[in-house]
Lab assay of single mutants.
Amino acid sequence: MGFKLLSKLLVYLTASIMAIASPLAFSVDSSGEYPTVSEIPVGEVRLYQIADGVWSHIATQSFDGAVYPSNGLIVRDGDELLLIDTAWGAKNTAALLAEIEKQIGLPVTRAVSTHFHDDRVGGVDVLRAAGVATYASPSTRRLAEVEGNEIPTHSLEGLSSSGDAVRFGPVELFYPGAAHSTDNLIVYVPSASVLYGGCAIYELSRTSAGNVADADLAEWPTSIERIQQHYPEAQFVIPGHGLPGGLDLLKHTTNVVKAHTNRSVVE
Rank of each mutant, 00 (worst) to 15 (best):
1 M>A: 01
7 S>C: 13
8 K>T: 11
9 L>Q: 15
10 L>V: 12
13 L>S: 12
15 A>C: 14
16 S>P: 10
20 I>V: 15
30 S>R: 11
31 S>M: 09
31 S>H: 07
31 S>Q: 07
32 G>D: 08
35 P>G: 14
36 T>E: 15
38 S>N: 07
38 S>L: 10
41 P>E: 13
45 V>K: 01
46 R>K: 09
47 L>Y: 02
47 L>K: 04
51 A>T: 09
53 G>D: 13
57 H>T: 05
62 S>L: 05
63 F>G: 15
65 G>T: 08
67 V>K: 15
71 N>S: 14
73 L>E: 00
74 I>T: 06
75 V>M: 04
78 G>E: 09
79 D>H: 09
81 L>K: 00
84 I>W: 01
92 N>L: 03
96 L>G: 02
100 I>P: 00
101 E>R: 13
101 E>F: 08
102 K>R: 13
102 K>W: 11
104 I>Y: 01
104 I>R: 00
107 P>G: 08
107 P>M: 08
108 V>C: 01
112 V>T: 05
114 T>S: 07
116 F>D: 03
117 H>K: 03
117 H>V: 00
122 G>P: 05
122 G>A: 08
122 G>Y: 07
128 R>L: 09
130 A>G: 10
132 V>R: 02
135 Y>W: 08
137 S>R: 08
143 L>K: 07
143 L>M: 11
144 A>F: 03
144 A>T: 11
145 E>I: 09
146 V>P: 06
147 E>F: 15
151 I>W: 06
157 E>V: 12
158 G>M: 09
162 S>F: 12
164 D>A: 14
167 R>D: 12
168 F>H: 03
169 G>K: 04
171 V>G: 02
174 F>C: 02
175 Y>S: 01
182 T>W: 10
186 I>N: 04
188 Y>Q: 00
188 Y>M: 05
190 P>N: 08
191 S>R: 11
191 S>T: 11
193 S>P: 04
195 L>C: 01
198 G>Y: 03
205 S>D: 13
210 G>N: 04
211 N>E: 14
212 V>A: 09
216 D>W: 06
221 P>W: 06
228 Q>F: 08
230 H>T: 12
230 H>P: 06
233 E>M: 11
237 V>I: 07
240 G>W: 04
242 G>N: 03
244 P>C: 04
246 G>M: 07
246 G>F: 05
247 L>R: 14
249 L>F: 06
249 L>Q: 01
250 L>V: 04
253 T>P: 02
257 V>C: 05
261 T>L: 11
263 R>P: 13
267 E>A: 04
267 E>Y: 14
